[in-house]
Amino acid sequence: MKAAPFEYSRPADIDEACAMLAADENARLIAGGQTLVPMMAMRLARPTRLVDINRIAGLSYIRQDGDAIAIGATTRQCDLERSATIARDIPLMAKAIPWIGHAATRARGTIGGSLVNADPAAEQALIAVTLDAVLNYREDKKTIEIAAGEFFVGAMVTSLPSTACLTGLKIPVWHGDRIGTGFHEVNARRSDFAFVSSAVQVQLDADGTCKRIAIGAGAATDFPMRLTSAEQQLVGSKLDAAKVKDVVTEALADIEALDDLHATAAYRKRVAVSMACRAVADARASALGEKLHAH
């Protein structure tokens, strides 16, 4: 399991990286490499040139940017995990990060790498879709924005042009009181890829009525999806369990769930409902300041 030969480059800036991609259609970017390197070791990926963007200045950051938190593409998962900004402003992401791989892979893995890899089970993609993140990438010396919901187009497939480089993303911060989050996922071993996952963020009125809600379902389908119809039906409700279950079930009724060695499509489809219901319940409880039971 040795990678096929390749040339190695370490561009000084992002435009140089893009130029290297443009010059060689088999060139690939490497950031954390936690997915790409094993693919290369198995020779399932065989770039002729590896463009290492790890040390490009200014690609790793977590900062406030207007009403959003901006995160640089090469920001490592462990930095997100430890970030007080993320914990305060994007608590849903803070909940999801520990579910990504292991500490040792989070130490290298980057958020940008995970997004462009677009694994159906990836937690960061789910968070990006759930929270309406806007991704930005650089191509041809221009910076282009794309909504997370339009970025993912298939299992391991994104709409990112092949000569572009993802530079970062912005996640809008929800402001106000009584905001709660819930994240659930199920897998065989605690650190495996999720069979099914769900991320939910909710804001309640003073009387506990749902003012705003975002429900994301991950790993069940080719790429993370928002349960928009359920969200619409739940705004204005008290998020009682029966209603949540009904609308979530309806929203997931027609999905084409993935089927593989680890979980059947029937399992994914069914448990996606449970995960979403639990995530909504957790989000509601945390918005109300109730203590959650551990999962």
Partner: peptide, 11 residues
């Protein structure tokens, strides 16, 4: 702690 198999030496 990182995995040394998941990184190329020049990196």
């Amino acid at each position: 702690a990182v995995r040394s198999c998941l990184m190329f030496a020049p990196q």
